[in-house]
Design a protein around this nucleic acid. Structure first.
Lengths: 143, 143
DNA sequence: CATTTAATTGAGACAAAATCTCAGTTAGAT
DNA sequence: ATCTAACTGAGATTTTGTCTCAATTAAATG
């Protein structure tokens, strides 16, 4: 075994493989970008960074792969500030304070939704994988 | 005093007026659409429905008005499923269960964030106006 | 009520983002 | 090694969002 992980052994890659999708070089490039950055990447950024890994990566493939991963529930599009959608892992929780005026995003860690998640899961027969909790308002500077 | 609107006046219109913006017919058409539907309207839908009220309403005006209201913190863009952004009131809380597979959105009412909101408000000097709590996963049909 | 003025508007050019098509390529099963 | 359905890139196309500018208008003022 080398120190380098084999291609296609990450959580994202495993998700694709287990769902029966092929692990192609263009897809692996997208996965590597998502795994390297992890948070808050727009499709355009994924394309740009992905081409550093796999130069002929096409925009269509980026969108297709993001859609695929979204459908599998392993990444999620979210909205931060005014900059269009970006993608983040759909694992665990994401917690933001978003300023309506300047668009600043503050992350916090308290998680108060665990019990509620269980209740909702039971109540609606919904299998919960992740959550997003955002507060909107005015940051200290903008008040 | 109270946020309860007087009869004949709307919360959105009052927000614009109090911020010093003119209450024009095109803007009122947009407000009426938002107030009639309230939730989850895309800019294209606002334009289409707005033109039923004010036929020459332009796309630019829709975007400008949505941006204005967003800047005032009275509506918020959110992403549901795979569609583009849609707008919803930035008042109180919005609580969704979103299915990663089929895009179904279930709303629920339990609110567990009140105490946390106060804590964060104190901790970050952030004035909180609304929140969004979404759970992602698989709905009963898609499991 | 008429005048004034700065905010607001629509139309359409423009730019950016996202989707679709299709012939060629490829991962992975056999 | 072969086969085949899944996948791909390139670029056309559509959709979405932004910008400009001359014309219009809300509302303050007299």
């Amino acid at each position: 075994m080398t120190d380098e992980p084999k291609p296609g052994t990450s959580w994202l890659a495993d998700s694709l493989r287990q769902a029966g999708y092929k692990l192609t070089a263009p897809r692996l490039a997208v996965l590597r970008v998502l795994e390297a950055e992890g948070e808050h990447l727009s499709p355009a950024e994924v394309l740009e960074r992905g081409r550093a890994i796999y130069p002929t990566l096409s925009r269509a493939t980026v969108y297709r792969t993001l859609e695929l991963l979204t459908g599998l529930g392993v990444i999620r599009p979210i909205y931060l500030g005014d900059g269009g959608p970006c993608f983040t892992y759909a694992r665990g929780g994401h917690h933001h304070l978003v300023c309506s005026a300047c668009g600043a995003v503050i992350e916090f860690n308290e998680c108060v939704v665990g019990e509620l998640a269980q209740t909702l899961s039971d109540q609606f027969g919904f299998q919960i994988k992740s959550h997003l909790l955002e507060f909107y308002g005015l940051c200290g500077d903008c008040q």
